[in-house]
Design a protein around this nucleic acid. Sequence first.
DNA 1: CTGAAAGCGCTTACAG
DNA 2: CTGAAAGCGCTTACAG
Lengths: 340, 340
Amino acid sequence: MRSSRPPTMNDVAAAAGVGLKTVSRYVNGATNINQELSERIGAAIEALGYRHNLAAASIRPGRSSKVIGLIISDLANPYYSVLARSVERVCTEHGYLLMSASSEEDADRHRLLVDRLVAQRVDGLVVVPPRQATTAWATSTIVHVPMVLVDRPTGPLESVDVHTVLADNAGGATRATAAMLAAGARRVAFLGDSLELYTMRERLAGYHRALTEADLGGATGTGPIEPIVSDGAHSVEDAAAVVAGFLASGEVDAVFAANNRAAIGAMEAFATAGRRLPLVGFDDFEAAPLVTPAVSVVAQDVALMGRVAAETLLALIADEAGPPMTHTLDVRLELRGSER
Amino acid sequence: MRSSRPPTMNDVAAAAGVGLKTVSRYVNGATNINQELSERIGAAIEALGYRHNLAAASIRPGRSSKVIGLIISDLANPYYSVLARSVERVCTEHGYLLMSASSEEDADRHRLLVDRLVAQRVDGLVVVPPRQATTAWATSTIVHVPMVLVDRPTGPLESVDVHTVLADNAGGATRATAAMLAAGARRVAFLGDSLELYTMRERLAGYHRALTEADLGGATGTGPIEPIVSDGAHSVEDAAAVVAGFLASGEVDAVFAANNRAAIGAMEAFATAGRRLPLVGFDDFEAAPLVTPAVSVVAQDVALMGRVAAETLLALIADEAGPPMTHTLDVRLELRGSER
DNA sequence: CTGAAAGCGCTTACAG
DNA sequence: CTGAAAGCGCTTACAG
């Protein structure tokens, strides 16, 4: 009847008049227990309000915490919340719980989170590396915790030997740009965020490739297509300002918006100016199909990305994953009208 | 040099040639340690790759896990991901980690999650009760884990003595409806999801109240305003179908869309029909300000809700919270044009 | 300021 | 099928 401290397995054993071991077996769902003892134990647990202490159980060697950790930039960002949900789903299917934490793209905070999660003895980690990451954070702190990277690699791809799940950023950008060229555009501008971001560098490379291929295809009678590149779309407002400049200059006849904010900013600039240019965005967003004309986008299967990452991690934990590799997922070009 | 099992505090003590206790003090940041011993310990930790085991530390009585649990419907839903992010932020500020889990509105799954989280010995729980919850889940399983409810109460408000954080659903609905009445609408329809949901019942009550007050205000010369109520907006498609019916009937001259999906469905129906009705939604959404006319909404401060819930929980854990009460947060009516 | 002992709640071989 | 003992990694009084 002690009310201050939660009841322990010992309390249950005493109350039921059985050995500690038997209670342990009962709680862990052992199959062969004397019917009568079993009932006494059940009654004692009920009466005392006993709850199994997994934290205590997990410190024994060989026993794991059955918790995995997830580090993303910002849980409130729809992209990452869908990713987190997908990872959570796989965890649930395998009896794991998820601890998720937002790094805010800050390398120091990221390192702190890794340390804390490792101290908490998670069984593994799914990680979106922070923007400014060098390979140091991984090599210095991770050591022996199974880990999978998602959305971006850490530093130069080959520098860390770890499973990595990425979208085909370059391929998507190539197809988006090519769609506008095919519709007749000649001066397609690239509008992206900081090229510090791996995904931006990849999308820019894809854009360049589309221009080059159009040249090689002989679609141009008047010399090579000149790239027009802006990396100033850090926010919707910034993006709108850049696009307003495009419109005023008369030098641009289509826009490849390399992320959500760029696409929304472009839409705002079009609305303000009262005229629009062909537009394709990267990453789908809620408003895209609702506006007129509906916005074409390159859509990633974020949920699949989360699933592949989580399943790879679980395989790693079970020691059944193959050698470290990069898993590149296809993207989908959703043509809805705005590309022309 | 054992590589199979992670190094323990004992290993560090042995390597550094000091007592276990001293290593413990070092790891826990104790202030007074002999300079030389301190350095030896630091070197040993580095050399062995030792990492503090918080799980083991937390099983001592009085020591807590510094983890809190969050149960929501679906982490991928923007409403709940913003809530989760806000709770996470408060946790971080206070040195806590967050375990979040999605109940999918399923009462059984919800109970499982509570059990698992309690077994994991979280220090407290922020919970969105599942839709079909009776008070049973709370009274039977929670017992002595600090808990705060958010977004909705469990069953009849007075039945469980627990801190609860809610938005002013009824007040927001009244103001939304009144705005359309003030703009001249007479036959405002309520379009919501299942009335099983607490928030829907509250919003419906607020809607009714606005009609009643308009009657009492004498704004009507032709007898009382008749309510028109649909609870069929379970999905965007369903909502669109209902609104198409409204348009065809000619009996409705404005729509109060009691959630996001209802509002988006209404927009789709308007687009299909080529004509629109005055519209106000509940809960802001990304596309709302981007379409023409921009959609007016009742906006909840979801981040504030998460913050208040988390801070209340932390106060509860510190035994500094007052008696259980309901915290009702104001909502904001964003008039953007679609209300007329 | 530091160490040896006892104990947190639980599980794992080891005997019965 | 069941129990008493030892031990998981750590911290807390207790002595020095």
